[in-house]
Simulated assay, not measured.
Amino acid sequence: MAFKLWALDEETIYEHVFERYMQLEAQSGKLPQDLGIQDRSRGVLEVAIEPFGLESSRRKKRVRRRNKAGAVEEVRNIALDSYHVSVEQSISSLHSSRDNGNSTTGYVVWSTTPFFISWLLYSASATPFRLGTQVEVVHGSSCEQHMLELPKLINLTGTDFSKRGILELGAGISGILPVILGNFVDVYVSTDQRGILTKLKHNIIENLSQLTRKQCVSRTLRLELPTLEPADDATTTITESLSKATLKLEVADLDWEKMNLQDEKTHSLHPELSLIGETCTSVYVVAMDVIYNEYLIDPFLKTLVQLKHWFQGIYKLEFYVLVGIHLRSQEVTTLFLERAIIEYNLTVYDIIDQTLQESRFNFYLIT
């Protein structure tokens, strides 16, 4: 069964947070009680993203449906490819006042990201993000219901000609999301603070082999399409690469506190954002585990408001935000929702799904 959405308002924020943390307390004996670092003992992590309970990455699960003409067509419901990435992280930089003067947590891999990828690709309940369908919405305290049409976040079939983009905020050093989800979109822009970008670029380049469905081009990573030379022994490999669809993958510095997209003069400073606007018909902003203290809330929400104006107002794109939160401080979670809904007037939906309710994570859809 697909997930449902609960449209939160200033009355139901507190009910939602109370219920969610009560669920956590009830499962305290089953869930990890750490802060969420994937592995703090190693400098190089091997992270596997694999289908639930399946050993073979070659098996494909399909569902059948009828199109308007009555003909039966097959659509892939769940991505069953497996992914294995090697990530260099720096525990020492995380705790270093020299390397980490602004206390960013991006130097290590946090467990929210692998969990999100597995849920998005393999969970039956995440189907709306893979197929683009209507989702049932329960509205606030009134419990009135309606349907919300969601565009695809990722395109599994490759038969849809709409162009999709993902803008990742607070990417950290891992590079896991772009090399996996990049298989299913047309433009992927991964952003963080300037001090994070060197290691982020390194990890992306080291794991480009995971982009099995796309040929990657990038200005910031200096990647170009291969040229076909008749005398080259690698002609067959190059021909196969050129037959794949192209992913435009960029890495960019995006400082939430300094960004000012309202000023037309600054547009030229963000060519990666313009790339999404000029190429795509829809964009999802993805932010995993970026809200972990109260000081980040306002800069993050101000950034979302600016991005919404940029993509929705200027480029007329469908605009959605997915925020993943590792549920640590109940106070921080409550404050984030209060500011987003009451002060910034954003529409925030809690994604209701049993898999999420049995975890330490919560995902919010913002429009």
Rank of each mutant, 00 (worst) to 15 (best):
F3Q: 03
W6H: 15
W6V: 11
T12V: 01
T12W: 01
T12Q: 00
Y14W: 14
E15S: 14
H16Y: 14
H16N: 05
Y21A: 01
Q23S: 07
E25N: 13
G29T: 09
D34T: 12
L35K: 03
G36V: 14
D39N: 15
G43K: 10
V44F: 05
A48Y: 12
P51G: 07
G53R: 15
L54R: 10
S56D: 13
R59G: 00
K61H: 06
E73M: 12
E73P: 06
E73K: 15
E74M: 08
V87R: 08
S90T: 07
N100P: 02
T105H: 04
S111V: 11
Y122W: 08
S125F: 05
A126T: 05
F129K: 08
T133N: 12
V138C: 04
V138G: 01
S142A: 12
C143H: 06
E144V: 14
K152L: 07
L153C: 10
I154F: 12
G165Y: 05
I166V: 08
G172L: 01
R194V: 13
G195P: 04
L200I: 07
N203I: 05
T212G: 08
R213I: 04
Q215K: 13
Q215P: 02
C216T: 14
C216K: 00
T220V: 08
A231Q: 06
S243R: 12
A245M: 11
K248A: 11
L249R: 05
V251N: 03
D255T: 01
W256V: 02
N260I: 01
N260C: 07
L261P: 03
D263N: 13
S268H: 15
S268L: 15
A287L: 04
I291F: 03
I291H: 00
E294D: 15
F300W: 03
L301Q: 01
V305T: 05
F311C: 01
I314F: 08
G324L: 04
I325R: 08
I325P: 00
H326R: 11
T333H: 14
A340W: 00
E343G: 01
I351F: 10
I351T: 10
E358V: 03
R360S: 11
Y364W: 13
Y364R: 09
T367A: 06
T367R: 15
